Computed example of a mutant assay.
Amino acid sequence: MNALILAGSRGGVDPVAAYAGVAHKALIEIGGETLLARVARALHEAGRAPVAVSTGDAAVAAEARRLGCRVLQSASGPSASVAEALETLGAPLLVTTADHALLEAEWVRRFVADTPRDADVAVLLARRDLVEAALPGTRRTYLRFADGDWSGCNLFLLATLRAAGAIDLWRLVETDRKRPWRIVRRLGPTALLLYLMGRLTLGRAVERLGALSDVRAAAVASPAGLAAVDVDKPTDLDAVRGVLATRG
């Protein structure tokens, strides 16, 4: 299985990189190790080899090569970069991000093992109670469903080449990632009504999203709340540093 680390840029000055005093977020160091190095190490320890890095930054590309990773030129956005990587690397393809600083090999192995065998694409999510218990005070974006509030964990599995059909939908979801109800609206009036009534489960919503793209999609629950913590803002970086300092 190949693995892909997304290390592109949304353009402009990244507030976390600026806060840390580096040119790119992936190059932020914690304990003498860049965020990119931490993620690549977790993937290698999980047995996901080879690992590729999608980036348009020369310094990040140099760091990726130093880590023994293949470098792919990033596209116009995360979904487009994944689409090109899937075409280049094939399936199955595990996808994560360079700012997933707390990523652990066991989370990756567990995610792959828990993905249904008939799924074309799977996404890892963590319940809000687990996230807040693991890191009190953290602020994340949650999807509210009948079976709880869920946060994405920046870990995806494109298990088959059919998963390419879901990437077009991914582009649309990117636009509304901070407004969950708009994502649900794409499922049709019945699903939206169930969502507004608090009766739509996460699993059913993901299955429906997959059906719109003619793929089998699955939501996998993470037993680790910290799996939902990435470095999206300066306070996240401080929190991650605190967690790693506690670990010693």
Rank of each mutant, 00 (worst) to 15 (best):
G165M: 11
G152M: 15
L158S: 03
A59P: 01
L143K: 03
D176H: 08
E87N: 03
V71L: 04
A58N: 12
G90S: 10
L103E: 09
T175F: 06
S151G: 15
W150R: 09
G165T: 05
F145D: 05
G56F: 03
I167F: 09
T138D: 13
L124C: 14
E84A: 14
P116C: 06
A62T: 10
V131A: 12
I167L: 14
L93E: 07
W107M: 12
V82W: 00
K178V: 07
S79L: 03
L72P: 06
L89W: 10
T88Y: 06
L155G: 00
D57Y: 07
V121E: 05
E84R: 14
G68I: 10
R140D: 14
A91N: 12
T115D: 00
E63S: 00
L94E: 09
W107A: 10
A133S: 13
P180K: 03
W107C: 02
D168H: 06
G165C: 05
H100F: 00
L135E: 10
T96G: 13
R109Y: 12
P78R: 02
T97W: 10
G68L: 06
Q73L: 11
A159T: 03
L72Q: 04
P116G: 13
L172S: 01
A122C: 07
C69Y: 02
R70D: 12
F111R: 08
V112R: 08
A101I: 07
A75P: 01
Y142T: 01
R128L: 08
L157E: 08
P180D: 01
L124V: 12
F111E: 03
V173F: 06
A113N: 12
A83P: 12
L130T: 09
R162E: 09
W170L: 03
R140S: 15
T160P: 04
Q73W: 03
L94R: 06
P92Q: 10
